[in-house]
Write a protein that binds this DNA or RNA. Structure first.
Length: 221
DNA sequence: GACCAGGCACATC
DNA sequence: GATGTGCATGGT
């Protein structure tokens, strides 16, 4: 029955917005890079950074790996947190070259669970980034959870406010058929809905704390 | 000028 | 285990 609800929401979203054509990127490496660059950042800013990398001929592993940290940081500057993100992209590349000859194809044979663990062990790659890479770059049936997913699910009473990543992922994993195309479109549609309509946490009108503790979210919903 | 954006790591209690 | 903070550019 939670599954029916999830399916119903999907149908409504798809009818309203149509296919979102995710991931917005040509190559697998562009998707991986974009997944790191878009951390807590609007896609419009990420596009500028990706355009810089492309213009510099650095949107492939070897070329990017050859850059210094400061060169890389300068190219990704428009995406914000550029020093941090440069390090994160470097960490990924170091791992890729040390263990897989710098070739994304060499990750293909890995079992999904194993690949996820390896990605999560890289500093700067958390659950959402890892799952985005798994779903959109490697077409594994993994549901991607993000801030919009959490907000929307909580506001529709599908889950307790303050639910963690694993709980949210489990909600969709349990309620839906394990289908790459469905997971691809569903996450993209939730982001679309979130951007257009689901603004951040409501604030207490009397004392608008910047971040309401999860324990109080029910009070101000 | 405040707020927000397709997170994550780390410090502190 | 929960909560707070730093990281930063660019659009509304």
């Amino acid at each position: 029955m939670i599954g029916e609800k999830l399916t119903e929401i999907y149908d409504v979203l798809f009818k309203a917005f149509g296919p979102q054509h995710w991931w917005p990127g040509q190559t697998r490496f562009e998707i991986v890079t974009g997944a790191i660059l878009t951390q807590n950042t609007s896609w419009a800013n990420v596009e500028k950074a990706i355009a810089n990398l492309k213009a510099a001929g650095c949107l492939e592993p070897a070329a990017l790996h050859g850059l210094s940290l400061s060169q890389l940081a300068e190219l990704v500057r428009p995406a914000g947190y550029f020093n941090i993100k440069a390090k994160r992209i470097k960490s990924f590349l170091d791992w890729l070259f040390e263990n897989y000859c710098g070739r994304l194809e060499n990750l293909e044979p890995l079992e999904t669970h194993r690949l996820r663990e390896e990605l999560l062990a890289i500093r700067g790659i958390g659950p959402e980034t890892a799952d985005s890479i798994l779903l959109y770059a490697f077409e594994r049936p993994v549901f991607v959870v993000d801030a919009y997913t959490a907000r929307i699910a909580a506001r529709h009473g599908l889950i307790e406010p303050g639910a963690d990543y694993a709980q949210l992922q489990d909600l969709f994993k349990t309620g839906l058929p394990r289908d790459v195309r469905l997971f691809n479109e569903y996450h993209a549609l939730l982001v679309r809905l979130g951007k257009d309509f689901c603004k951040p946490k409501p604030r207490c009108p009397i004392c608008p704390l910047r971040d309401l503790p999860h324990s109080l979210e029910n009070e101000y919903r």
